[in-house]
Amino acid sequence: MSQERKPERVRDEKINGVIYDMSPAPAYQHSQVIGQIFAKIKNGLKGSMCLVFMENIDYKYSRDNDDYLEPDLIICCDRSAIRGNSYYGTPKFVAEAISPSTVKRDRGIKKDIYESCGVEEYWILSPVERAVEIYYLVDGKYRLQESYVVDDDKESEHYNLGQEITLRAFPITMTLEDIFIY
Rank of each mutant, 00 (worst) to 15 (best):
E8F: 08
R9N: 14
R9S: 14
R9A: 11
K14Y: 05
N16H: 12
I19Q: 09
A25F: 14
A27R: 12
Y28G: 14
V33I: 09
G35F: 04
F38V: 07
F38I: 08
A39N: 14
K42I: 07
L45P: 02
K46H: 12
M49L: 15
F53E: 00
N56M: 03
D58C: 12
Y59H: 07
K60W: 08
N65M: 09
D67W: 01
P71N: 06
D72Q: 02
L73T: 00
I74K: 00
C76A: 05
C77L: 01
R83S: 15
N85P: 08
N85H: 09
S86Q: 12
S86C: 13
G89C: 02
K92A: 00
K92S: 04
F93R: 02
V94H: 02
A97I: 03
I98E: 07
S99F: 01
P100V: 05
K104L: 14
D106I: 01
D106S: 04
G108D: 06
K111W: 01
D112R: 10
I113D: 02
C117F: 13
S126M: 10
V128C: 05
V132N: 04
Y136K: 11
Y136A: 10
G140A: 02
Q145S: 14
E146F: 09
E146T: 12
Y148R: 03
D151L: 04
D152P: 12
E155N: 14
E155A: 13
S156W: 05
G162Y: 13
T166E: 10
A169K: 13
F170W: 09
T173A: 08
T175V: 06
T175R: 03
T175G: 06
T175Q: 05
E177C: 07
D178E: 10
I181K: 09
Y182L: 14
